[in-house]
């Protein structure tokens, strides 16, 4: 299988009070298409930073980040935004749904950037929500849903544009055990049945077991 993610000599640092704080040290990594990768490590190890760089929502200090055939470190802001909208689906720990929009409207959001007609958008949204098992909750607002349901809406939003890569930052971190299990089963299904490449950051060893590969980060290095 071809590598969908190629990270070479990736270095990332932040500046705080004129002091450079390195987060990732010359990191090199490849993720193959269809892989389900779990990134583990203690707080501050740089796993979320690595995920953000792979997803194109942060920029490296230096190094190459080649994702879905594009060196995203070289893209301008608007090109990167366009690239994200068509190649990456995002799942966050705290779901990050828009509270004034219904489940349907939240899932529809990424499709507003496409040229799809209203009817086509409706079809896509209904499909995505039925995949996550929320076909009957389309008109519900986030506050009317449980945490697990909110996360499933977020997953539906992540897959509605049919991206090849899903990135998930602690997707079960805010859920009870039962809901977390349901989310993990859903992600496993997305990986196996829908052939999505998934990169998931997690603290939870049980969640990491669902992945086909586990990588550990410590102080900005892969161990």
């Amino acid at each position: 299988m071809a590598a969908i993610i190629q990270v070479k000599n990736l270095f990332k640092s932040y500046w705080r009070n004129n002091l450079e704080i390195p987060v990732l040290h010359d990191l090199t990594l490849e993720v193959e298409e269809g892989e389900f990768l779990a990134l583990m490590g203690p707080s501050g190890s740089g796993k979320t930073t690595l995920l953000n760089l792979i997803a194109g929502i942060d920029r490296p200090t230096r190094g190459e980040v080649n994702v879905v055939g594009t060196d995203i470190a070289k893209l301008g802001e608007s090109a990167l935004a366009k690239w994200r909208s068509s190649n990456v689906g995002f799942v966050f720990q705290f779901y990050n749904l828009i509270p004034v929009l219904t489940a349907f409207e939240n899932v529809e959001l990424p499709l507003l950037l496409t040229k799809l007609s209203k009817a086509e958008r409706k079809k896509h949204v209904e499909t995505a929500l039925s995949i996550v098992g929320l076909g009957d909750r389309m008109s519900h607002y986030p506050k009317q849903l449980s945490g697990g349901q909110e996360q499933r809406v977020a997953i539906a939003r992540a897959i509605v544009t049919d991206p090849s890569l899903l990135v998930a930052d602690e997707p079960t971190g805010d859920l009870d055990r039962k809901s977390a299990e349901e989310i993990l089963i859903l992600m496993d299904r997305l990986n196996k049945e829908f052939k999505k490449t998934i990169v998931m950051v997690t603290h939870d060893p049980h969640a990491a077991q669902k992945a086909s590969r586990q990588l550990h980060l410590e102080k900005g290095d892969l161990v």
Partner: peptide, 10 residues
């Protein structure tokens, strides 16, 4: 931040 992440422009 969510809007930007999803690809919404400036």
């Amino acid at each position: 931040a969510v809007f930007k992440t999803l690809g919404f422009s400036r």
